[in-house]
């Protein structure tokens, strides 16, 4: 059963083929990783899947429905959630408010009720606050709930973004380098969190440079190089693929037959 299917998508920036003819699929509870050298088009692919960019070629379907070029907020309504490589935190809001905003689709209501602080509006806020606190507990940030988000460390901000993305109760979660800049302990925590989320039936699409982590948790790996898919398969297969080794380490290494990882 496929939740997300990407078929032959591509986009050009000026004369550059940033992504070309990439396809793969993700099922509920599956962790699929997209790897590749810097500039391979991983984040661009993420931006197309999450509706930030409109693909110029190909088709993206979510649960059988064509969602190619759909706006990010519409995709969120269909259960697609994401984090960002370069962090997109709501800096001037508290840690708790950041996660509460992740519950927007559940807590939104008539603006008039919000202006007059009607009981229905207060109830929605209170319910969201409880949910957000539970999520902060889950990512280990409960004690920082009232702090301004901009005061958190980089590793904590990464976890905050994950909590905010989970607040949407996604069916598919796109994580763009969730462990970047995190120390070994933090990486392991994120690792566990991702596995746990996948176990609950959420499809996960992961971009990550930490190869140990990718090899450990992915069920399936898609390898990009210069915007094209050069390999895909189970971690063990992909790491022995000569094309992959070449893309990562150059031709010499490929000839020597070194494994990635």
């Amino acid at each position: 059963m496929t939740l997300l299917s990407v078929e032959g998508v591509g986009i050009d920036f000026g004369g550059l083929r940033a992504v070309n003819d990439v396809g793969f699929s993700v099922s509920p509870g599956e962790i699929v990783s997209i790897i590749g050298p810097n500039g391979a088009g991983k984040t661009t692919l993420f931006n197309m899947i999450s509706g930030v960019y409109r693909p110029q070629r190909g088709r993206i379907a979510l649960d059988g429905t064509d969602v190619t070029g759909m706006a990010p907020n519409r995709l969120a309504e269909r259960g697609l959630s994401r984090t960002f490589q370069n962090l997109q935190i709501f800096q001037r809001m508290s840690v708790l408010e950041n996660v509460m905003t992740g519950c927007h689709l559940r807590e939104r209501g008539p603006v008039l009720g919000d202006l007059l602080s009607l009981p229905s509006s207060r109830r929605r806020s209170a319910a969201t606050s409880a949910r957000a606190n539970a999520l902060l507990e889950r990512v280990g940030l409960a004690r920082a709930a009232e702090r301004e988000a901009s005061s958190l460390s980089y590793g904590a901000l990464k976890r905050l973004e994950i909590a905010r993305a989970l607040a949407l109760e996604p069916r598919i979660l796109l994580l763009d380098e969730p462990a970047a800049g995190c120390n070994a302990v933090e990486t392991e925590e994120i690792d566990h969190l991702i596995a746990e989320v996948a176990k609950s039936g959420v499809a996960i699409l992961l971009v990550e440079h930490d190869m140990k982590m990718v090899m450990r948790i992915s069920g399936h790996i898609v390898v990009l190089d210069r915007g094209e898919k050069i390999a895909e398969g189970a971690p063990a297969t992909v790491s022995r693929n000569p094309k992959v080794i070449e893309a990562y380490l150059g031709t010499q290494a490929a000839e020597a037959g070194d494994a990635v990882g």
């Binding site: 999450s50 930030v52 994401r82 997109q88 935190i89 709501f90 992740g102 927007h104 689709l105």
Partner: peptide
Amino acid sequence: DSEVAARTVGV
């Protein structure tokens, strides 16, 4: 603070 992040949470 971040229009793109706001959109992705459904705003």
